[in-house]
Design a protein around this nucleic acid. Structure first.
Length: 696
DNA sequence: TTTTGAAGTCTCTCC
DNA sequence: GACTTCAAAA
């Protein structure tokens, strides 16, 4: 139970689709061919909006109708959202039988398999999962231990080191090649970097910690290193289906090979024009290499778009036609009519925000529900101004992607307490907790952890540690808390209530620290209330902690519980998080060179190409209405000599603009007077000066 | 020597 | 607005 993936959340009522008797009735010939295709490797190249997911789901349904047991089908996706959506749609199509289809992201399925089979591979069953931040923290600790932390300014930053490590695991490129290609300036440190990676690997093992990359790597290794393990793991499934295959990397291809060598019943779908995860080691050529990895594979191409109007496709096709390398064809639709997409010129961010809010309301009044509209942007923080405006105007919205609830420092702090009680060897969490205590800094924390390691991380070791006088009292109350947590946590049987009371116990100590640290702690304290509420939904502390790393609730909205679908809310999303989704009306904001494409991608041709595909993904989300907005003036923009950041995105060149219509925002807010040019009647500043006795 | 406060520097995407 | 770096204080 506890080990089941959490991605599938069955709703109470599963209504079978009325037309599920003939699964191919609603499909075009190409789609139907993919659905009814037999048991050999199958590659479906499917452009945006061509019914890719629909085809995949129908294929699952078809397999079930052919008598394949639902729980012997594995459906792999790339993002959590895609996994949840796919399984929900499968259920709608074939009814509750699909409830037993196994599915999730590669990482979550890898996690489940590791809990199940890890013991046979020498991995303790109670390992803790580290998120990216934790992994970096751990590497930082190793860096200190190896004496690489200081003294050398030119040594790569921990962030870069972790990136290199992850890249090495996911792309299977040797370190020296990676260094040569991506960061030649660090070549001279290759020896130290290798030593650091070795230390990191050992450190993880000794602390019983597993990072995201391990979830994939260990899965692959279990399949490859032991024929009997492979038989047991691969033997769990008769059919494997993979969505968004263009976003897989070599490690994942290896996993699929291991899972499918026996039966070769593998279906993958994807679109090379929508490959946007190169930063995670994916390469769109992977999808084209599929026939080589799985000889005898059949390829089916879907090019008819069912989503967008022709004018929207015209624009998207021109944008992607500028790509250096491209394999999929132009999309076409039989949908008639539709307005040309808008290219909206705004004076500045404020006007861009006003335009979006006004237009959203306008569409809403004309009958488009809020949930049929989305605002897309390159990076999470770019919607800040809009969020404030929407809140002011009381337009309900939910935000996808961007900074996550669980990445907030205070949430991680509280979780760290739970994690050390769960896994006393969790060095990352120990460090975090110790640094919170007054009188303890980096060096004392390291000394204390070394002492605990001396005692083999005995849970009682902490109580007997010596601390500086200043930290005495804090040490005592922390020791007390940890004993208490172990006591509470021991009775795992009573489930979520226990996790919640753990959190309450932690807060008895932590709230004071938090209040001390921040001027306005209210919002953060509220976050912790949320965390407690979320915790009640999990059967045990172990499941709770693992789920948080792999399937984190995105924050406020998820908390509302099952009612989220009933609320009519506007979606704000990063383009990455929007992939695979569609809306009647889509706004793409910040179409400014340096923002989209991001300035750091401009110099590297490959990265620029990925940005282009990202823009393509953004544009192809729209069904009926599409508006691309760009503010001409960017306040507080970077003072870079190389680029000016108030130019229209380079992806919207002349030819592209010819498929759009220009819209200039009428400045309705012109009533707001510009700063007075006349001499002030009074001088407020002068009146305020000296108010606090100071003279500055 | 270690901690802590303050000024200064950027800001991605996801599991 | 969060994290890093630097200098002063304990």
């Amino acid at each position: 139970m506890a080990d089941e993936p959490r991605l599938y959340r069955p709703r109470d009522r599963a209504v079978p689709h009325p037309g599920d008797r003939d699964l191919t009735a609603a499909l075009n010939p190409d789609q139907a061919r993919a659905v009814t295709f037999g048991d050999a490797p199958l590659l479906v190249i499917a452009g945006a909006g061509t019914g890719k997911t629909r085809t995949l789901i129908h294929r699952v349904a078809g397999l079930i109708e052919r008598g394949v047991a639902a729980d012997r089908i594995l459906l792999l996706t790339f993002t959590r959202r895609a996994a949840a959506e796919m399984l929900a749609r499968a259920e709608r199509l074939v009814g509750s039988a699909s409830a037993r289809v196994h599915g999730g992201t590669f990482h979550s399925v890898g996690h489940r398999l590791l809990r199940q089979f890890g013991a046979a591979a020498g991995l303790p069953a109670d390992f803790t999962i580290m998120d990216q931040g934790d992994a970096q923290d751990l590497m930082q600790l190793g860096r200190g231990a190896l004496g690489l932390a200081k003294s050398n300014k030119r040594f790569p930053k921990t962030e870069t080191l972790h990136w290199l490590y992850s890249r090495h695991i996911n792309t299977e490129l040797p370190l020296d090649e990676l260094l040569h290609r991506d960061t030649p300036q660090f070549l001279e440190y290759q020896e130290q970097i290798t030593a650091l990676f070795a230390d990191y690997t050992l450190r993880k093992q000794e602390r019983n910690l597993v990072d995201y990359d391990d979830l994939l790597l260990f899965w692959a290794l279990m399949l490859e290193a032991s024929p009997s393990l492979q038989a047991r793991i691969a033997g769990l499934y008769d059919h494997v289906l993979v969505d968004e295959y263009q976003d897989t990397n070599l490690l994942q291809a290896r996993i699929l090979r291991g899972m499918c060598t026996a039966h070769r019943k593998l279906t993958v779908v994807g679109d090379d024009a929508q490959s946007i995860y190169a930063f995670r080691g994916a390469h769109f050529r992977n999808i084209l290499d599929f026939p080589r990895h799985f000889p005898g594979a059949t390829m089916i191409t879907l090019a008819q778009n069912y989503r967008s109007t022709q004018p929207i496709l015209d624009l998207s096709n021109v944008v992607i036609s500028r790509a250096e390398e491209r394999y999929t064809k132009d999309l076409f639709t039989k949908r008639e009519g539709g307005e040309r997409p808008w290219l909206v010129t705004a004076k500045d961010e404020a006007q861009q925000t006003r335009f979006v809010a006004d237009r959203v309301l306008q569409l809403y009044e004309s009958g488009v529900p809020l949930h049929d509209m989305a605002v897309l942007f390159r990076a999470g923080y770019m919607s800040a101004d809009l969020e404030i405006e929407l809140a002011n105007r009381k337009i309900p919205f939910e935000k996808w992607g961007g900074l996550k609830f669980l990445e907030a420092a205070h949430v991680k702090d509280v979780l760290a307490f739970l994690r050390v009680s769960e896994n006393p060897r969790d060095e990352v969490s120990w460090y975090r907790i110790l640094m919170l205590l007054p009188g303890i800094g980096d060096s004392t924390a390291r000394t204390m952890m070394a002492a605990m390691q001396e005692r083999s991380w005995d849970p009682d070791a902490f109580t007997h540690l010596l601390t500086p006088p200043k930290a005495r009292e804090a040490h005592r109350s922390l020791a007390h808390l940890l004993r208490q947590l172990r006591g509470i946590g021991a009775a795992d049987a009573s489930g979520g209530a226990k996790v919640a009371s753990d959190i309450t116990a932690v807060r008895a100590l932590y709230d004071a620290i938090l209040t001390e640290k921040y001027d306005r702690p209210e919002a953060r304290l509220a976050d912790l209330d949320q965390l407690r509420t979320i915790a009640t939904g999990y059967p045990s502390r172990t499941t709770f902690l693992a789920a948080l790393a792999l399937d984190p609730p995105s924050g406020t909205q998820d908390l509302a519980g099952g009612s989220e679908s009933e609320n009519d809310t506007l979606v704000l999303s990063t383009v990455h998080s929007a992939k695979g989704k569609e809306w009647k009306a889509v706004f793409v904001i910040w179409a400014v060179d340096g923002w989209f494409p991001a300035s750091r991608s401009i110099e590297d041709p490959d990265e620029l190409e990925e940005e282009r595909r990202l823009m393509y993904v953004a544009l192809t989300r729209a069904k009926d209405e599409l508006a691309v907005v760009y503010p001409m003036q960017v306040y507080g923009s970077k003072r870079s000599a190389d680029y000016s950041f108030d130019q229209l995105s380079r992806f919207l060149d002349r030819g592209v603009r010819a498929t759009m219509q220009r819209v200039v925002v009428e400045d309705t807010e012109a009533a707001v007077p510009a700063p007075a040019a006349t001499a002030p009647e009074i001088d407020l500043r002068a009146l305020m000066r000296g108010r606090f006795g100071g003279t500055s």
